[in-house]
């Protein structure tokens, strides 16, 4: 099963490489990963999506917790949560295609953020499945380049991941 794990870690050099290193060292899988500072300058938040059965996920969270730089973590998929990813896509847009791209962009509630005579650059946010669907819809027209941020997430309701 796919899990989204959010980690608060010390905003220190080396912390990120410890987390990433743990995954390769123990043969855990990383589907996506993003990391950025938080409102507290001493902490960064890292979100990783991974796939594994319960035993593997239990090992992943235990080993992450063992890292000295990891202050706190939560497996968002254990409860209700909001999951978002942002994607920028360049698609071919010539002649009749230009309208078709535009229509699909509207259906997906995406935005065109840059335009040239032959290319549209589209920005779209949503969960990973929505972004996949958008790419699929665009593929007959011609996807030129894709940049995805990886999944970020937060739990629903009053629960917060903070110190």
């Amino acid at each position: 099963m796919r899990h989204i794990i959010s980690i608060l870690m010390e905003n220190e050099p080396g912390a990120l490489s410890r987390v990433v290193g743990l995954f390769s060292q123990r043969n855990f899988n990383i589907e996506s990963l993003n990391v950025a500072p938080t409102d507290d300058a001493t902490l960064s938040r890292l979100t990783v999506t991974t796939v594994g059965d319960d035993r593997v996920i239990e090992q992943i969270t235990k080993h992450l917790n063992k890292l000295i730089d990891v202050v706190k973590l939560v497996d968002l998929t254990e409860g209700n949560h909001v999951e978002r990813e942002l994607m920028l896509v360049k698609v071919k847009a010539l002649g009749a295609q230009r309208d078709e791209v535009k229509r699909t962009v509207d259906i997906f509630r995406a935005q065109i953020v840059d335009v040239t005579p032959s290319v549209y650059t589209v920005q779209i946010t949503g969960d990973a499945a929505k972004l996949d669907a958008f790419l699929q819809a665009m593929s007959p027209i011609g996807v030129l380049e894709v940049a995805r941020t990886g999944v970020s997430g937060i739990s629903r309701g009053d629960k917060v991941l903070s110190l």
Partner: peptide, 11 residues
């Protein structure tokens, strides 16, 4: 003492 040692290879 190490939670990650528990149920690692044998439940």
């Amino acid at each position: 003492i190490d939670p990650s040692s528990i149920s690692k290879t044998v439940r």
